[in-house]
Computed example of a mutant assay.
Amino acid sequence: MKYFILVENASIATNLLQILRKEKIKATLAPTPREASHACGVSVYIYNKEDIEKIEPLAKENNIKIDEIYKSELDFDTKRNKFL
C-alpha cells in the first residue's frame, strides 16, 4: 500500500514536506495519483505507514489542512518525477 497526503496546492505540499523532514519523517513530493481525482497535481508521498499517525497532529499544529490521506495499491517509483 502507498500513502499520499493530498492538500490544496503545491505550496502547502512543500510546506508540509519541510515540516515532516524537520521531524525526520521520510517523505517526498510526488505527482498525485490520477485515480485520486484531486485538483492539486502535487502530493506528499509517505514512505512508512507508521508515520501517518504522526502527520495529522503535526499538520494541525502548523495550520496545514490535509484534504485526504490517499491509499493506493498502484506501483509507484519514488525516483520517477521526484520534485524535491
Rank of each mutant, 00 (worst) to 15 (best):
M1A: 13
K2P: 03
F4N: 00
I5G: 03
I5S: 02
L6Q: 04
L6K: 04
V7H: 05
V7C: 05
V7S: 10
N9T: 14
N9K: 10
A10I: 15
S11I: 07
A13D: 10
A13P: 12
T14M: 14
L16M: 06
L17R: 13
L17N: 14
L17E: 15
Q18K: 14
R21T: 13
K24A: 09
K24E: 14
K24H: 08
I25Q: 03
K26W: 12
K26Q: 15
A27K: 09
A27R: 06
T28Q: 15
T28E: 15
T28I: 15
T28A: 13
P31H: 09
T32D: 05
P33L: 14
E35W: 00
A36F: 07
S37V: 08
S37H: 01
G41L: 06
G41D: 08
G41M: 09
V42F: 00
V42G: 04
V42D: 08
V42N: 02
S43Q: 07
S43T: 07
S43L: 09
S43G: 06
V44F: 11
V44W: 10
Y45T: 10
I46S: 04
I46Q: 04
I46F: 02
Y47A: 15
Y47M: 14
Y47E: 15
N48Q: 13
K49Q: 10
E50K: 12
E50I: 14
I52Y: 02
I52L: 07
I52T: 03
E53H: 10
E53L: 10
E53F: 08
I55N: 06
E56D: 13
P57H: 07
P57N: 04
P57G: 03
P57F: 01
L58V: 10
A59D: 08
A59H: 02
K60R: 10
E61G: 10
E61P: 06
N62D: 13
N63Q: 10
I64N: 08
I66L: 00
I66Q: 02
D67I: 03
I69K: 00
I69W: 00
Y70Q: 01
Y70C: 00
Y70F: 06
Y70N: 00
K71R: 02
K71Y: 03
S72T: 08
L74G: 06
L74M: 05
L74H: 04
F76A: 09
F76E: 07
D77I: 01
T78V: 07
T78W: 01
T78K: 07
K79I: 07
R80Y: 07
R80H: 10
R80D: 14
N81K: 11
N81R: 08
N81C: 11
N81M: 09
N81D: 13
L84V: 13
L84F: 10
